[in-house]
Amino acid sequence: MGLLADRVSWHVGGRLIVDEVSLEPEPGSTVGLLGPNGSGKSTLLRLLSGVRGASAGVVRLDGVPIDRVGRRNVARKVGLVEQQADTGVDMNVLDVVRLGRVPHRRPWSAETAADEEAVRSALEYTELSDKKRRSWHTLSGGERQRVQIARALAQQPRELLLDEPTNHLDIRHQLELLGLVVRIPVTSVLALHDLNLAAMFCDQLIVLREGSAVTSGKPSEVLTPELIADVYDVRAGVSPDGPGGRPAVRFFPGKPSEC
């Protein structure tokens, strides 16, 4: 049950972007998608959210192929936070978070008590309650990400998909944001670039290269100098006793092939 991908592929213009990737997150766990730029992380998240249809293979939500669940029903269970959400429209934080109620509302119907409650608790969870009247355009990058997460939470999802949520944030905000994501009691799948943050916050990691899954498992199993050399083409050392008993990665200058 839950959300799973079964050997999904996606290609555009003859180029394979995602190549037979399977993924089945444990309910309530945090799964990190790793891989270099262009390895298919963002596309895989779009396939999982049903925003894109798979060229081959199938994404299932509670056992049903996602394209047969219906867009609204998917949006009530799966929330997607995109990498760089922006708008030219002048909105405040509350307006943006309220968008999360779109899949729960019928045409013509007014906002219900359940809508208000979901928005209120999403704002509270992301510690944005005192900023709800702030204009979107005055927010910092970290605040915008938090607002988008609050919007996704207002959807009351069971699965949360995040595409590089820590992009362009300073280290404190990266840590705060991932701490927040891990605390949310939903299954989350997030694309990440920082291997140490992935090790610290994720229960499972999947490493993609050119669209295919190279390996997957616990951070301690996945993050090895060999894998990092192989996938990212950089020299790295991994010590197993990082924060919280998770592995910690250090990088060295030079190409791995030169050693």
Partner: peptide, 11 residues
């Protein structure tokens, strides 16, 4: 408001 993909992900 936040684009086509955002609209699709909102159902």
């Amino acid at each position: 408001t936040f684009g086509q993909d955002a609209a699709a992900s909102l159902g």
